[in-house]
Design a protein around this nucleic acid. Structure first.
Lengths: 135, 135
DNA sequence: CGATAAAAGGAGTTTAATATCTGAAATAGA
DNA sequence: TCTATTTCAGATATTAAACTCCTTTTATCG
């Protein structure tokens, strides 16, 4: 599509946002999170597994189990999340991946360099805590 | 995906860019454009039909036929193109369409309003001519 | 008029992203 | 140790985007 984060990544951010509102160390189950954020459980479950492997989340099965943040929300940037979900591919040209390579950069590259850098900075500096206002 | 323009829209922009380099009024065939821009012909063909219906392109079948810009490149903005290709849907929240509505805006909305406006401005003010440098 | 070159349009195929299902394995608590 | 609860892993279904193929229509040239 034409949106900035993949839908999966959007779910991830919303899920993590929910966790960041939780008293420190208290695990949340997928279902609690999904009920509050209106996100499909099976899908969020998949992403959270991935985030756990990436080290962003701790997880524990069984009663009283669930997921929790391994770092305070202020330490987790949107870029961290995007990277963990979408992988390195997000490093390519954000505008014209279909016609842009280091050897032959797309005609746009030079033009919107500055805007690109601003987006980059935004992703890097915006943390879960910054977004923690409702809803 | 996570890219700003849909791939189809990328093709459209590259195709139009090629046309904008053409001496005024001279039609180009799909194949000429595709050869130069390394774009799949059948796909570009479909998009160009759409752009012709939208009024951005003129077209003529038969010998000496092809496509041409109906306005000078300096008058065609990226936003025009995006709109013609992806439709109104590009009007929604660029960040969290999956969890954002006028009634319940996503938590991010307020935060990146300014960045969003800058992107908007960029799309509106950047024209084909601005990008007309190689390749 | 007939041959040719091009766009126009319909229908189907492929591929990638999303979403779901099912059955395990792990943990806590009784 | 047994049971309920939860994550984990793999397979599969669903959906939408990209792409291709084939036929039809329209203009131009001889």
């Amino acid at each position: 599509m034409h949106t900035f984060f993949s839908r999966t990544c959007q779910y991830a951010i919303r899920g993590l946002l929910e966790l960041s509102r939780q008293p420190q160390g208290r695990p949340c189950t997928i279902y609690q999170i999904c009920r509050r954020q209106r996100v499909p459980p099976a899908t969020l479950s998949k992403v959270f597994q991935q985030l756990a492997r990436a080290g962003l989340l701790g997880s524990s099965p069984g009663r009283q189990g669930g997921y929790w943040l391994r770092q305070p929300g202020a330490r987790i940037s949107l870029q961290d999340i995007k990277f963990a979900v979408d992988g390195e591919s997000s490093n390519g040209c954000r505008w014209f991946p279909a016609g842009c390579s280091p050897a032959a950069p797309c005609p746009h590259h030079a033009k919107w360099r500055s805007l690109d850098e601003e987006i980059e900075r935004y992703l890097r500096t915006t943390t879960l805590m910054d977004l923690a206002g409702a809803p």
